Simulated scan of single mutants.
Amino acid sequence: MKNLRSKYFWFLTLTILGYGLFEYYRPKPIDWTPSYSDKDKIPFGTKALVELLPDVFGNQEVKSLRLPIYNHLTESKLPAKSNYIFVCQNFDIDKNDRVQLLNYVKKGNNVFISAYDFSDTLLKILDVRATLKAPSLRDTALVMNFVNPTFRKPKGYVFPQDDGRNYFLVKKSKNVTVLAQNARNEPIFLKVAYGKGHFYLHNLPLALTNYYALDSATSDFAFKSLSYLPVQPTYWDEYLKQGRFGENEQSIFRFVMTQPPLKWAYYMVLFGLFMFAIFAAKRTQRIIPVMEVPKNTSLEFVQTIGKMYFQQADHANIAQKKIQHLLLYIRERFGLRTNELDEEFKEALSQKTGFARLEIDLLFGEIAHAERSGRLTEYALLSLNRRIDDFYQKTR
């Protein structure tokens, strides 16, 4: 039975181990989640595009940011002119970010925004509206193309994962220039003048991801779109997609680690806890008092009672108790009945104990004498006691 259980245990262990190895080494399914993140190699990440951006901007610095727009534009030392690129699903910013971004462009800088859903307040200021429609069947995707003849592609661009039905509604304005449109001549890429700079609004962010930036049929669409930006230092925003802190900065102790006094205090606390665990965390208990071994007072009690009877010269009573104890001993030790102390009983007792029959006769003779006598002499009691003790010693 034990061997059978052992076989089942090893079978189960090997099965679990095999399944774990299979899951670990089997090809991972492709993740089609649109993250638009510069750290993702998945189809709809933007790692490939960001790595190629220096070629687009003539080896100018392209810096990835994990700061809110407000913090970057108010706390960082900015070059005289620069570009700010946003590629995300939803371009949703608060009032402070929006004010700083508008001031940034007004001073002569450029902002490129590629998203499906735009902040309504920003678009109202720019006098533009954006439509957001649910995607339909992929085989009905619209063809995209640039307006500039230099950039136009004879057969246009098709992005199967995006049907191209999102577009901008533009009022006639000298500040707005259409750079690209779909097959219905609906604008999908705009250049909007604002102050001394420009906003570039693009509603096809999927076209800028790894999947299409590395596909020879569509790769030039992303780079032609970004080539409208002037060659100057460029900032790539990751805050709207990944948040402020990277994976190695998510700890709740990140502020503590940035402050040397707090960091050393934290280390000292850890060291103190470690030393406490070694030297002081042992289980403590009260000192166990020395307890004397309990004395068996039964013998003393018996001796006391015996002395009391002996001093009262009640020899017959003492003899009677000694006889009762002896008969109880014979019943329990040798399994003999003591109702009748006849010849048959004495013979059986002699055989079971190995005690000489003569000694048995003498013992029970004195017992019979003690039971017949109303008063027993001290000498007769001592003689009976010696014979009973002798019987105990020889039968134990």
Rank of each mutant, 00 (worst) to 15 (best):
A80R: 12
Y84T: 14
P205R: 04
Q232C: 10
S383A: 07
P34E: 08
F253I: 08
G108D: 08
F279H: 06
S350D: 06
I360Q: 08
E343Q: 11
K133L: 11
I113D: 12
P29W: 01
N175Y: 06
V128P: 00
Y266W: 12
G20W: 09
N90C: 06
T209K: 06
P29H: 09
F276S: 06
Y379G: 08
R152F: 03
H325P: 02
P233W: 00
A213G: 05
V87Q: 06
N185F: 01
N175C: 03
P54C: 00
F86L: 04
R66D: 05
S225K: 01
F199Y: 13
A193F: 02
S225W: 01
N248C: 02
T297A: 10
S173H: 08
A130K: 08
R254M: 07
E186D: 04
F11W: 11
F199A: 11
V302M: 12
F57L: 00
R333S: 10
S136D: 13
V87H: 04
E343A: 10
E344Y: 01
L270Y: 06
S6V: 13
K352L: 11
R138W: 07
K81H: 12
L208D: 13
D117K: 05
Y379F: 12
N182I: 03
D97G: 02
A48K: 10
N185G: 00
K174C: 03
F364M: 09
L137K: 15
R283H: 10
L123M: 09
K77G: 02
D97F: 00
K7W: 15
K282N: 11
S119P: 00
R98I: 11
T140F: 14
Y228W: 13
L17D: 09
D120Y: 02
K124Q: 10
S251P: 01
Q100H: 04
H202V: 06
P205S: 08
Q259G: 00
T46R: 01
A222Q: 05
F189G: 03
L349E: 12
E344L: 10
L270E: 10
G164S: 03
G335C: 06
A348L: 06
N385Y: 05
P149M: 03
M275V: 08
Y167R: 07
M268G: 07
E371M: 09
V56L: 05
F221G: 06
T297L: 15
P205C: 07
R5I: 14
T121Q: 12
K133H: 04
W264N: 08
Y212E: 15
E340R: 09
G365M: 02
A141Q: 12
L327W: 04
F279I: 07
E23G: 01
G45W: 02
S6R: 15
P79W: 05
K224F: 11
A217Y: 14
N203M: 10
Y84W: 11
K153T: 13
D117A: 05
D55Q: 07
I388R: 01
P154D: 13
K106T: 10
R165G: 12
S298H: 14
S219G: 04
K352P: 03
G20H: 07
P233C: 00
K153M: 13
L169V: 06
F345E: 05
G108S: 11
D92L: 03
T284P: 04
H325Q: 13
N248P: 02
Q60A: 00
E378Y: 00
S216C: 02
S216K: 09
R333G: 02
L204A: 09
K155V: 08
A134N: 08
R331S: 07
A134R: 14
L142K: 05
K153P: 07
I252R: 14
Y104L: 04
Q311L: 02
I69Y: 01
